[in-house]
Design a protein around this nucleic acid. Structure first.
Length: 675
DNA sequence: GAGCACTGC
């Protein structure tokens, strides 16, 4: 877990910090070093607070694993974990960050020639494999939080099994939760052959358990299932508040809607309580909040007030809050899945896994013994799946496959997956890559298009459109649009009660052609003279941090294109909206056409009632309220995002096109698909 | 007419 490191960010936790010598892991130092020396693969089952992430790299470093000039890599699924753990380890070793201890994340490489312990995101290590296929610069690779089963850590593990066959000196350490340890061991050792791997199967991998320093958590179940877990949540909060000793409460719900409703319900009920019990501070926590708003949950509540944090799954692994004594777990989570037949992503509320339930309960025992109230019965708990299906079994695999092809994996279907993706997902991904021209008839990556698409840190449809931009003479504009699209709807802010003002602010950037060119106008205005500042953003209801990120992304994309020999012309870059006349129409049309070359598979037509229908006419889509076409009319459009939520399918980032362009830029795709 | 769980290059 990265818990002990996350804690570094909050001053409250200073008192909780235990010196490394007191951590449970210190006693296991010799065992660990012996195991890693002896076995190519070591699986560490470490409970929260075991110190494995910070201590193991130091043990290895001090016992000479980097003496020959190699390094130790430790991967994390999240950027915050990378930077905070690196800072902690540098501090413990008394060196400056970027010297012996460094880190590398997108846009931020803090390493030097002296760096021997390097923390990085698993996505970043995947990119390194492109330039260093056997990862020769590392003697040990530790994949932390592997039990989270993120897309990139799963792929990384598969690649490591291949690298280990060729590098008998490499040591791999996988950190995992109890429920997955055997699965990982079996995965790495199943086909071990002494001739290839240099070791017998029984000498290949070993599992070590490290106790954590968690406190006991009392579990409470419902006797009868509840028909309404929000109502039950509010009752439970008030019960705890009126009858249990001090201590903050953390509530797990599924989404923003539920969270806001629950906060309102608590507020309503407080009036019914004895006035001495009205000292509750309820705080929402979900990723959509600005970081300022999220910071409130780390601040201590006012004197004699009980803090109640009502959160999404973000508090399960990504955000750690100390001082929590009570956890209320509704038993559900919002999970994204991908329907390979329609290509539509779905966000649905699903029961959590046992692993999640255990993790949530554990959030109550970080500071002192706690209690967890599960709003489901013990029988329901027993019926839960052990673990959440890994991402690779419920995602659009086109981006992953393209990466694998680019790494020289010719048969992506027979890749050593920790868990095999369903064949329908694989087929759909291959079809899409073929339609985009990234694969040829024999399912080989195309040169240069496929390789170039894989080089860009963008999803394949957008990568394709961007790579076509030069031929439409709109590279500068498409770079800005691509950068803005990676912000995924965080560009505009909608403060409660100011929707009208926010809407009219947006209209200043809006154009009839739709959302993409509107995003371009926002970007262009943001980088204009004197405007790159938070106040200008606030006045225009724009998200300053998001726009700053767009600037970084754009720079990185331009660098990638430059490496590919594609240079941004000094002549383009005019404001599409501001410049009048024929030339502006031409530029917008060039952008519209360019987008169509990437997003032709995402075409739809508006019906008289304002809803959309897919090309085959089979599915009704709705413009997301954040799109200009929520209000405006169009005929044919392409969209960049499609997501089903509740009972409607929403499309977002929409641009109007001419129907004929679909046939012009994707003749094969529409010959086959259209009836 | 009315809204997105969470990451990452």
């Amino acid at each position: 877990m990265a818990d002990e490191e996350d804690a570094l960010e909050t001053p409250l936790n200073a008192a909780l910090y235990k010196p490394p010598t007191l951590l449970p892991i210190a006693r296991l130092k010799d065992v660990l070093l012996y195991t890693i020396e002896t076995y190519p693969l070591t699986i560490i089952v470490g409970e929260t607070g075991s110190g494995k992430t910070t201590q193991i790299p130091q043990f290895l470093y001090k016992s000479g694993w980097t003496a020959d000039g190699t390094s130790i890599a430790i991967t994390q699924p999240r950027r915050v974990a990378v930077t905070t753990v690196a800072a902690r380890v540098a501090h413990e070793m008394g060196c400056e960050l970027g010297q012996e201890v460094g880190y590398s994340i997108r846009f931020d490489d803090v390493t030097s020639e002296k760096t021997r312990i390097k923390f990085l995101t698993d996505g970043m290590l995947l990119r390194e494999i492109l330039v260093d296929p056997l990862l020769k610069r590392y003697s040990v690779i530790m994949v932390d939080e592997a039990h989270e089963r993120s897309l990139s850590s799963d792929i990384l593990l598969g690649l490591l099994t291949k690298i280990m066959k060729k590098r008998h000196d490499l040591r791999v350490v996988v950190s995992s939760a109890t429920l997955d340890a055997e699965h990982f061991l079996e995965f790495f050792t199943a086909d071990v052959d002494e001739k290839i791997h240099g070791k017998k199967k029984e000498e290949y991998g070993y599992v070590i358990g490290i106790e954590g320093r968690m406190h006991h958590v009392d579990l409470h179940y419902l006797i009868e299932p509840t028909p309404d877990y929000l109502e039950r949540t509010v009752e439970t909060i008030l019960e705890i508040h009126t009858s249990e000793p001090d201590g903050d409460i953390l509530v797990f719900l599924t989404g923003r809607d539920e969270i806001e409703t629950t906060i309102d319900m608590i507020q309503d009920r407080l009036g019914d309580l004895d006035s001495k019990f009205r000292n509750i501070q309820s705080l929402p926590l979900y990723a959509g909040l600005s970081s300022d708003q999220q910071m409130y949950v780390f601040e201590p509540a006012p004197e004699k007030t009980r803090k109640v944090i009502i959160s999404t799954n973000i508090a399960e692994a990504s955000v750690t809050i100390d001082g929590i004594v009570y956890v209320i777990d509704c038993g559900f989570v919002k999970l994204r899945s991908y329907d390979p037949t329609s290509g539509i992503e779905r966000l649905s509320i699903a029961p959590i896994s046992k692993a999640s339930a255990i993790q949530r309960a554990g959030r109550a025992g970080r500071t002192r013994p706690g209690k967890c109230y599960r709003l489901y019965t013990e029988e329901d708990y027993e019926d839960l799946e052990d673990v959440t299906p890994p991402e690779i079994q419920r995602s659009n695999l086109a981006p992953v496959f393209l990466q694998l092809f680019n790494l020289g994996i010719t048969n992506v279907v027979r890749f050593p997956y920790v868990s095999n993706p369903p064949s329908k997902l694989a087929t759909r991904a291959l079809e899409l890559l073929y339609a985009l021209g990234a694969l040829d008839d024999l399912a080989r990556i195309t040169k240069p298009l496929g390789i170039r698409m894989a080089e860009l840190p963008l999803e394949p449809m957008l990568a394709k459109a961007l790579l076509n931009a030069t031929s439409f003479n709109c590279l500068s504009e498409m770079l800005s649009i691509a950068a803005m699209m990676t912000l995924q709807g965080t560009t505009f802010v909608l403060p409660e009660g100011e929707k009208k003002q926010a809407d009219s602010a947006k209209r200043k950037f809006a154009v009839d052609e739709g959302d993409h060119i509107t995003l371009f106008n926002v970007y262009d205005a943001f980088i204009g003279p004197g405007r790159k500042d938070p106040k200008w953003c606030r006045d225009n209801y724009l998200n300053f941090k998001a726009l700053e990120k767009a600037v970084s992304v754009r720079k990185q994309l331009a660098r990638h294109l430059d490496h590919l020999g594609i240079q941004e012309s000094a002549f383009s870059g005019s404001d599409v909206r501001r410049v009048g006349g024929v030339s502006s129409l031409e530029l917008t049309e060039r952008i519209q056409r360019c987008l169509t070359t990437g997003f032709f598979a995402h075409a739809a037509r508006m019906k008289p009632d304002g809803s959309f229908t897919t090309v085959d006419g089979g599915t009704t889509l709705w413009a997301h309220p954040s799109s200009l076409f929520f209000h405006r009319k169009a005929d044919w459009v392409i969209y960049t995002e499609i997501l089903e939520s509740k009972d409607k399918i929403f499309i977002r980032d929409i641009t109007s096109i001419d129907k004929d362009w679909l046939l012009e830029y994707a003749p094969e795709y529409y010959k086959v698909k259209k009836r």
